[in-house]
Simulated assay, not measured.
Amino acid sequence: MTSNFLKAACILISSLACAAVLHPSSAFAEEACTGSMAAPPKISGMYIDNFDGWQAVGKQAWVSYAAGNQMIFDICSVDNTKNFLIARNSADNQYNPGKYSRFEWYGSNGQLFYCQQVFDAASAADAADFSKTTAADSSDANDKGCGKAGQFPWSQLILIAR
């Protein structure tokens, strides 16, 4: 777990050299993605989620660690106004390696929630296409609204470090 914590910490401080040493395939993520980021996600930080996993969100990547499985998502673009980001799934991820994801988030009553609404798109453009996969429904985040059919609950993010 310590090495995973160090990976997340490096991502959060946006150190390209650190990323190259710890995870060479994501060190130059911008070459693998379309678009560019002017700013990091406004939710950048380290979190514990309500499913006993942890999430680290930074300028270069979103790192997810749960049930002994680590997944890295190299960030392609961020829309802090509409609360979503597009990322390329690392080639080392257990699920949908090399595909593209769309993470969405929202805050309510002092709580922060996220949904990986798209996880297997063929391109960054497909992941960002809200006509192909509509936005997650935040009206009942504790029970449903996340997933292409809205069948899953959103994940709550509990901040542990910014």
Score class of each variant (00 low, 15 high):
56 A>V: 02
61 A>V: 04
114 Y>G: 04
60 Q>N: 12
103 F>I: 12
48 I>M: 11
98 G>D: 07
85 L>A: 04
29 A>P: 02
87 A>N: 06
39 A>H: 06
113 F>I: 00
54 W>G: 05
119 F>Q: 13
41 P>L: 02
51 F>P: 01
32 A>Q: 15
55 Q>T: 14
39 A>D: 11
93 N>D: 10
70 Q>W: 09
30 E>V: 09
109 N>F: 11
34 T>R: 08
64 S>N: 10
79 D>Q: 01
92 D>H: 09
107 G>S: 15
95 Y>V: 13
71 M>E: 14
53 G>A: 05
106 Y>T: 13
78 V>C: 00
35 G>P: 08
101 S>H: 06
105 W>A: 05
100 Y>I: 07
115 C>G: 05
98 G>M: 06
63 V>A: 04
49 D>Q: 01
72 I>P: 07
91 A>D: 13
50 N>P: 01
80 N>M: 05
70 Q>Y: 01
104 E>C: 03
44 S>N: 08
60 Q>E: 15
94 Q>V: 14
62 W>G: 00
100 Y>S: 04
96 N>A: 14
43 I>D: 07
33 C>K: 01
57 V>G: 02
31 E>T: 11
74 D>E: 13
53 G>T: 02
91 A>I: 10
83 N>F: 00
29 A>N: 02
49 D>V: 08
122 A>K: 11
71 M>K: 09
115 C>H: 09
109 N>A: 15
28 F>Y: 10
30 E>H: 09
49 D>H: 10
56 A>P: 07
62 W>F: 13
85 L>R: 00
35 G>N: 07
73 F>W: 12
95 Y>K: 12
78 V>L: 01
75 I>H: 01
115 C>A: 08
119 F>L: 10
107 G>T: 12
